[in-house]
Simulated scan of single mutants.
Amino acid sequence: MKILFLSISYIKTIEEKGIYTDLIRQFRDGGHQVYVVNPIEKRLNKPTQYVIENGVHFLRVRIGNITQNNLIEKGLSTLIIERQFLNAIKHHYREVVFDLIINSTPPITFEKVIRFVKKRDNAKSYLLLKDIFPQNAVDLNMFRKNGLIYKYFRMKEKRLYQISDYIGCMSQANVDYIKKHNPRISANKIEICPNSIDILSINNNDDSVKQIREKYNIPSDKTIFIYGGNLGKPQGIDFLIECLKGNNYIHQAFFVIAGAGTEFNKLKHYFDAEKPTNARLLEELPKDEYELLANSCDVGLIFLDHRFTIPNFPSRLLSYMQSSMPVLAATDVHTDIGQVIEQGKFGLWCESNNVEQFNKKINQFVDSTLRESMGKNAKTYLEQNYSSKHSYEIIMNHFK
């Protein structure tokens, strides 16, 4: 089949590791022709470009800035992405007839692009639902429910669900939420198609762990908890700071925070003012360097703001599992990530507004026997449930 893959994730190379690139390679290696449309943000100072890389066609469309900027610029840039992608496809892919369109959220504003290609090529479409917008923004008080902004994006969301032939959700809670809040959408086209990756064998030796810890001034005699990734409003950074403050008395625990986002400066202000002795804050690292750092730590952390009413399921979980690390998730009560972690026996969960419960979980992980057992379970659960081959087969099952 000829497959059109739409995403707002910037993909430097098809060989990099990630939930989208790993899935794209599955389609490529399965004998399909894959055409990717993804953005180049204005701040990178590059024009729209079309290249063929390792068997995959890339159309990188110059757009406005949607990351590392303020909400107004991000919002305006997001509004015009649909038109920019549509114009680029009409120009560069005008003679390509697609069989399948795969797109992910965010954004929910690709409905016209999908409608055009479906009508022109008689193609099917598969939506990878990674973000439930605009309700997530309402949960965080970014704008008012039933206001004009909400109504506009809710209309776009409904149209996207309606035009999609299949909707792949990250977990059962996501499936249940979409069915409940979108009763006009056929339940038969909604299924679980989870975040997934190519599973690698990671061998850590004592020398490499010692070396990377020394490089970042991380103690060798403590249990190291790491959070890596986006540091924005969805992560509930205020709660994270309260957890750091509340763990000063747990002398066997040390926290490493590495990432970037709109709330990074809030964290930096705390570190500069309080100079905590139980934690280290690092700016976003290159992917390979971050993986080395993460593999030298003991427990992976996941944070979600407790105000969420939509069931997020962060993909950060997968990198922890691949490193055979147990997971501590502090989240709202609507996501089922905590249930998955605890039922799979590879981690612990608490609500992200209870510092006392968080501290109790931290104390449990000081036990190296518990960490080792849960770490092994994490890798096993990953292999059985979250491989990119598994996601590929879920999608292709509709086209056999």
Results as ranks from 00 to 15, higher is better:
residue 194 P to L: 06
residue 206 D to F: 09
residue 21 T to M: 10
residue 224 I to A: 03
residue 182 N to S: 11
residue 294 A to K: 11
residue 193 C to H: 05
residue 285 L to Y: 10
residue 373 S to K: 14
residue 166 Y to L: 03
residue 260 A to Y: 11
residue 101 I to C: 07
residue 239 F to W: 02
residue 196 S to E: 08
residue 248 N to Y: 08
residue 186 S to W: 07
residue 70 N to Y: 10
residue 282 L to I: 12
residue 118 K to Q: 14
residue 161 Y to M: 04
residue 378 A to L: 04
residue 1 M to Q: 10
residue 34 V to S: 02
residue 242 E to T: 01
residue 249 Y to E: 14
residue 348 L to C: 02
residue 72 I to M: 10
residue 287 K to E: 10
residue 269 H to R: 13
residue 49 Q to S: 14
residue 12 K to R: 14
residue 343 Q to F: 07
residue 212 I to R: 06
residue 5 F to Y: 15
residue 41 E to V: 08
residue 74 K to C: 08
residue 238 D to K: 09
residue 396 M to F: 06
residue 329 A to V: 10
residue 262 T to A: 15
residue 189 K to P: 02
residue 280 R to G: 01
residue 78 T to I: 09
residue 153 F to K: 02
residue 60 R to I: 03
residue 299 V to M: 08
residue 143 F to N: 03
residue 22 D to V: 06
residue 115 R to W: 09
residue 158 K to Y: 07
residue 322 Q to S: 13
residue 346 F to D: 01
residue 317 L to S: 09
residue 391 S to D: 06
residue 329 A to P: 02
residue 217 N to Q: 14
residue 281 L to P: 03
residue 363 N to D: 13
residue 187 A to P: 08
residue 122 N to Y: 08
residue 153 F to E: 01
residue 270 Y to R: 00
residue 114 I to C: 01
residue 385 N to C: 09
residue 30 G to N: 12
residue 94 R to N: 15
residue 26 Q to K: 15
residue 342 E to P: 02
residue 260 A to R: 10
residue 58 F to S: 05
residue 285 L to I: 10
residue 381 Y to C: 04
residue 351 E to V: 15
residue 143 F to H: 05
residue 310 I to V: 15
residue 70 N to A: 09
residue 361 K to C: 15
residue 96 V to E: 14
residue 386 Y to W: 11
residue 38 N to E: 11
residue 351 E to R: 13
residue 205 N to S: 11
residue 263 E to W: 00
residue 184 R to D: 15
residue 285 L to P: 07
residue 258 A to Y: 00
residue 274 E to S: 10
residue 185 I to L: 13
residue 17 K to P: 00
residue 372 E to P: 00
residue 256 V to N: 00
residue 89 I to Q: 00
residue 3 I to F: 05
residue 299 V to T: 03
residue 139 D to I: 04
residue 192 I to E: 07
residue 375 G to K: 02
residue 77 S to M: 07
